[in-house]
Simulated scan of single mutants.
Amino acid sequence: MKRFLILVAVAVMATLPALLLRATGWRPSPVLDAAAFGSAILAAGFLLSWGAETAEQHIAQGLILAVVALVTVLPEYAVDLY
């Protein structure tokens, strides 16, 4: 359990540079932007999959699959709406 919490903390910390760049609007370089936002997307994917696996213990597997599918598709709809 302790190892899992450490992994979750690392994943959350991997999203922080991208959140900071987004909140401040600072753009140091395209390469740094790609690295920060790429690691944040990867970490968010890990967090989403770990959350789905944990939720399967309490909620039906089909419902969790539908929610995860909706969450992964929502950014595409947001771009289309914009």
Rank of each mutant, 00 (worst) to 15 (best):
A14Q: 04
V68Q: 00
R22Y: 06
I64F: 02
A9Q: 12
E53L: 15
L65D: 15
A14S: 02
S29K: 09
T72R: 07
F37M: 07
E76M: 13
I6N: 10
M13W: 03
A34W: 07
V79N: 03
L32V: 15
A14T: 03
A36D: 06
M13D: 01
A55W: 00
L70Q: 10
V31A: 15
A35Y: 08
Y82D: 04
V67Y: 06
A60M: 03
P17Y: 07
L70K: 14
P75R: 10
E53V: 08
L16D: 09
Y77P: 00
A18H: 05
L32D: 09
L70I: 07
P30T: 07
A9M: 12
V79H: 04
V10R: 08
M13F: 08
A18P: 05
Q57L: 09
A44L: 10
R3T: 13
A44G: 05
A40Q: 05
W50V: 08
A60N: 15
H58S: 14
I6E: 10
G51D: 00
Q61S: 14
F37V: 07
E53K: 13
L42F: 10
P28V: 10
Q61M: 10
A52P: 02
P75M: 07
P17T: 09
S39F: 04
I64D: 05
G25E: 01
G45K: 04
A43P: 01
P30D: 12
L63M: 15
W26A: 07
H58R: 15
